[in-house]
Amino acid sequence: MHLTHKILPFHQLNVDELYQLLRLRSEVFVVEQHCVFLDQDDKDQQCYHLLLYADDQLAAYSRLVPADLSYAEPAIGRVVTSPAFRGSGLGRKLMELSIQGCEELFGPQTIRIGAQTYALPFYTSLGFVEDGDRYDEDGIEHIEMVRKPG
Rank of each mutant, 00 (worst) to 15 (best):
Asp68Ser: 13
Gln100His: 11
Tyr48Lys: 03
Glu96Leu: 15
Gly91Ala: 14
Ser82Asn: 13
Val80Pro: 00
Ala84Gln: 14
Ala115Val: 02
Ile113His: 03
Asp44Arg: 08
Arg78His: 02
Ser62Pro: 03
Asp41Glu: 09
Tyr118Met: 04
Gly107Tyr: 01
Asp44Met: 14
Leu50Glu: 00
Tyr118Gly: 07
Asp42Asn: 15
Leu50Pro: 02
Gly114Pro: 01
Gly91Gln: 04
Gln100Trp: 08
Ala72Asn: 09
Tyr71Ser: 02
Ser82Glu: 05
Asp44Phe: 13
Gln116Glu: 10
Gln45Trp: 00
Gly77Ser: 11
Tyr71Cys: 00
Ile111Val: 13
Tyr53Gln: 06
Ile111Ser: 02
Leu38Asp: 15
Gln45Pro: 00
Lys43Tyr: 14
Glu73Thr: 12
Asp68Phe: 14
Pro121Ile: 04
Ala60Lys: 02
Leu120Trp: 01
Ala72Thr: 13
Cys47Asp: 05
Ala54Cys: 15
Gly87Arg: 11
Gln100Asn: 08
Ala72His: 13
Leu58Cys: 13
Ile99Tyr: 08
His49Phe: 13
Tyr118Ser: 03
Gln40Ala: 15
Arg63Lys: 11
Leu94Ile: 02
Thr110Tyr: 08
Arg112Pro: 00
Val65His: 07
Ala67Trp: 06
Ser70Glu: 10
Arg92Tyr: 11
Pro108Tyr: 14
Val80Trp: 07
Thr81Glu: 05
Phe122Val: 13
Leu94Met: 07
Leu51Ala: 03
Leu94Ser: 01
Asp39Thr: 11
Gly91Asp: 01
Tyr118Pro: 00
Ala75Asp: 01
Gln109Trp: 04
Ala72Phe: 09
Lys93Thr: 15
Gln45Leu: 12
Ala119Glu: 01
Tyr48Asn: 00
Phe106Trp: 14
Lys43Asp: 05
Gln116Arg: 05
Leu58Pro: 06
Gln45Lys: 14
Ile111Trp: 00
Leu105His: 04
Gly91Glu: 01
Ala75Met: 09
His49Cys: 10
Arg78Leu: 05
Lys93Ser: 13
Lys43Phe: 07
Asp39Pro: 08
Asp42Gln: 14
Ala60Gly: 14
Phe106Leu: 06
Asp55Ile: 09
Tyr53Asn: 04
Arg112Asn: 02
Ala54Val: 13
Leu97Asn: 06
Ser98Asp: 02
Gly101Asp: 04
Leu64Ile: 10
Asp55Ser: 09
Tyr61Leu: 07
Ala60Arg: 03
Pro121Glu: 06
Arg112His: 07
Tyr61His: 12
Asp68Thr: 08
Gln116His: 11
Glu104Cys: 12
Leu50Lys: 04
Leu90Met: 14
Leu69Asn: 11
Asp41Phe: 07
Gln116Asn: 08
Ile111Gln: 03
Glu96Phe: 07
Gln116Tyr: 08
Ser82Phe: 04
Tyr71Thr: 04
Glu103Thr: 09
Ala72Tyr: 08
Tyr48Glu: 00
Arg78Ala: 02
Arg63Asn: 00
Gly87Cys: 11
Ile76Gln: 05
Cys47Glu: 03
Leu58Gly: 08
Ile113Arg: 02
Gly89Ser: 05
Val65Asn: 02
Glu104Arg: 11
Leu69Trp: 10
Val80Met: 11
